[in-house]
Simulated assay, not measured.
Amino acid sequence: MAKILITDDAAFMRMQLKDILTKLGHEVVGEAENGQVSVAKYQELQPDLVTMDITMPELDGVGALKEIKKFDAHAKVIMCSAMGQQGMVVEAIQAGAKDFIVKPFTSERIDEALKKAL
């Protein structure tokens, strides 16, 4: 069981992810609505893994990923993107993301990404 921090500016996406992750047997230890909050919560909670939306206000997912990696080089982050954000995904992988999942999510794909990242 992994301790996971969910980052997404859409409350319904966080709820959907939390539901899937909980059903897969993981513990959601925190939620963040933007990159800035995610970085602060990562430092506070030190989860095993972060799911990170790419497009968010204040600090986007790639920016937050870079900040988290500065704090913890071994941080495990899975990026979540909508279709058509391939450029951002490439940048995220180069910045150290473990994997990315495309919305809408399936629990199988999330499970697969978690197994790969953890």
Results as ranks from 00 to 15, higher is better:
94 Q>N: 14
94 Q>K: 15
83 M>K: 10
72 D>H: 08
4 I>R: 02
60 D>P: 08
83 M>F: 15
104 P>Q: 12
15 M>N: 10
63 G>F: 04
45 L>S: 03
39 V>F: 06
4 I>G: 01
18 K>Y: 09
48 D>F: 08
14 R>D: 07
110 I>W: 03
80 C>I: 15
45 L>I: 07
100 F>R: 04
10 A>E: 15
103 K>Y: 14
92 A>T: 07
110 I>M: 14
72 D>S: 11
110 I>T: 06
37 V>M: 08
118 L>T: 12
25 G>S: 12
28 V>T: 05
51 T>E: 04
28 V>K: 04
24 L>M: 11
1 M>Q: 11
30 G>V: 08
86 Q>L: 11
35 G>V: 03
79 M>Q: 02
74 H>I: 07
113 A>L: 07
55 T>R: 13
64 A>C: 06
113 A>R: 04
25 G>Q: 12
87 G>P: 01
108 E>K: 12
27 E>F: 07
45 L>H: 04
30 G>E: 05
79 M>Y: 03
97 A>K: 04
36 Q>G: 08
75 A>K: 07
10 A>K: 14
117 A>G: 03
91 E>I: 01
1 M>S: 15
65 L>Q: 00
69 K>M: 10
48 D>A: 07
91 E>N: 11
31 E>R: 10
46 Q>C: 10
96 G>H: 06
90 V>T: 12
23 K>E: 15
88 M>K: 11
